[in-house]
Write a protein that binds this DNA or RNA. Structure first.
Lengths: 201, 201
DNA sequence: ACCGCAAGATACGGATCTGTATCTGAATTC
DNA sequence: GAATTCAGATACAGATCCGTATCTTGCGGT
């Protein structure tokens, strides 16, 4: 079997992935409901037949897309956790992560909100997203415990919830006021909060 | 002119308002793009003709809806500001506000996010939403200055940004984990932050 | 009381979307 | 290398949606 020629399985997997990627981009731009199956297929370089050969439905594709993103986020969280324990500054990996994300922030956050709304409206998908959030929150809680020890002003889980929730909120505000709010708001805010929690209040 | 009978202007204004209300509910449930003009008209108790007699477009209705919500939010912010200066506990009005909102929180936040996404994608509308956020943030900044005085760990505007952003983020998390997160998270978190900022860190 | 006019309903043409059913070419099997 | 099978393209029918154009009904002026 020649390695430059694609096998049938490989070809199928490749178009599946291309369809998923194309869908993600279009969802960020025009929303899930604002994107037709035809547009997804065309933007991926295929026809609608290819789509229905790989997914039963647009709903099915969204579920698959959500699952993929959950996996990737899980990996990213693990990587951040790993890096954070190595460095002396816990926030430096987070800062790097936001630097990388800054360029495509609009598309990224838009897609995130779009999928969030989709999950809130579809009970069978909501647990998937909720679990993803839990993972991130628990990782943050670990970091908080590591940083603050016992002299924290409240339960570490609660503090982690605050830090985690802050990210979404701040990024939303950043998209609304791109000029007034810096790329590093999230990390700056986290740093401030951790600092003000360190000394017993 | 009999007062129980509606004048022509009144009738028109009433259907306009009913269309706006119906649209708001449906947008929260199925999203802006997921709602057809026909569904809006029907849910308001009219036909599509009534819709196109009052709005040129669905886009026009969304803009109008956004404007209405901006006005109402401006009033609510003003009321909160007024109440907060009267009471001894600054956070009590906010707590009351969240208690009232708790019942319809899902619909309210869903519609908020939906309109936010819509605004992010339509440059001509985005400033409207951005301004609304600015108003709320400035009000919070005033409260922060009043509470903390000069011994704040950072610029009052920055602290206000954090508090403001936190609200969205926490409400999102609350919708994802309705059982784990209390109705009063937002106020509890705000209270914690203010307390930890009060003593110089 | 009557007439003009506006609010809202109904009717229609055109476009778009969805899902399936059928077709074609390339990959796999024998 | 011929037969089979499968990935993907094309064709088609049904549904939905949009926007306009044309009624119908009841208010407002005289």
């Amino acid at each position: 079997m020649p390695p430059n020629r694609l096998s049938r399985q490989e070809s199928r997997a490749r178009t599946r992935q291309r369809l998923l990627d194309a869908a993600g981009e279009l969802f960020a731009e025009r929303g899930v409901n604002g994107t037709s199956v035809e547009q997804i297929a065309e933007h991926a370089g295929y026809s609608r037949g290819a789509f229905y050969g790989n997914f039963t439905d647009k709903q099915a594709l969204v579920a698959e897309l959500l699952k993929h993103r959950t996996l990737r986020e899980r990996e990213e969280v693990a990587a951040l956790q790993r890096d954070a324990t190595d460095e002396q500054d816990v926030l430096e990996p987070l800062r790097a992560w936001h630097r990388d994300r800054a360029e495509h922030l609009t598309g990224w956050l838009t897609l995130r909100l779009e999928l969030l709304l989709y999950a809130l409206r579809n009970p069978e998908i909501r647990p998937e997203v909720a679990e993803r959030e839990t993972i991130a929150r628990e990782a943050i809680a670990g970091g908080v415990r590591h940083e603050l020890g016992d002299d924290a002003p409240a339960d570490a889980d609660f503090l982690a919830l605050i830090l985690h929730a802050l990210e979404d909120g701040l990024l939303i505000q950043r998209l609304l006021h791109p000029d007034r709010i810096s790329d590093e708001v999230v990390v700056d805010a986290a740093e401030l909060l951790l600092r003000s929690w360190k000394r017993p209040g």
